[in-house]
Amino acid sequence: MSQAAEAVSAPPSALAVEIIGMHKWYGEFHVLRDINLAVERRERIVICGPSGSGKSTMIRCINRLEEHQQGRIVVDGTELTGDLKKIDEVRREVGMVFQHFNLFPHLTIMENCTLAPIWVRKMPKKEAEDVAMHFLTKVKIPEQAHKYPGQLSGGQQQRVAIARALCMRPKIMLFDEPTSALDPEMVKEVLDTMVQLADDGMTMLVVTHEMGFARQVANRVIFMDAGQIVEMNEPNEFFLHPKHERTKLFLSQILH
């Protein structure tokens, strides 16, 4: 009953993300099955699982890059439906970092970071540039501000992507395999940036295979397989005492 649902879920503003009974199909293929998740503010969630398990699809549903067909998704108190205004509201408060960076190659780093604040939050240019420099300094590449993405290394580009997302001052950050496309020596610089972000209190959902990061920073680790959340626990329990067969199998393949 709906009243029971309301009694169980916490008052809206405390939860960053609520997913209730969510299903998604690609054509005939049932890609996400009965997803239920509640993320509190300042929580850091790491999502792992074999490829094709639907983990990227799930977080992409949170900022409506993918549409769900059944169930409810509530982000920061706003429910995601077909309503374009609601979608815009949600996207302003949710930042995303992609596996392949997706920086805008025809704009400088500075312009990449100030584009959305100027055109979406209607900030004056000077203010937007100050904000951009602040976050570029935070990710430790302020001197690259006037270069173009093509002139930077992969690790630098990903850090710029993080700064660009932060310039919108989102309440929630989504990371879709942020280090999978990087050369090994650059993975650390990006992970360090993400750790610092976590220390600053950002709500984060991270899809990744980097288990060291999970152990260091996550409040919860979620294991997904075949479109379902199979196991979820806090990191120590998750890694030391996995309970489900499939979790055990996956961890044995990853951690060697």
């Binding site: 239920n36 998740l37 509640a38 959340i229 199979v230 196991e231 979820m232 626990n233 329990e237 309970k243």
Partner: peptide, 11 residues
């Protein structure tokens, strides 16, 4: 409700 309360969960 367990999920909502984020206690350890196994499907």
């Amino acid at each position: 409700s367990k999920i909502m309360r984020h206690e350890g969960y196994v499907r």
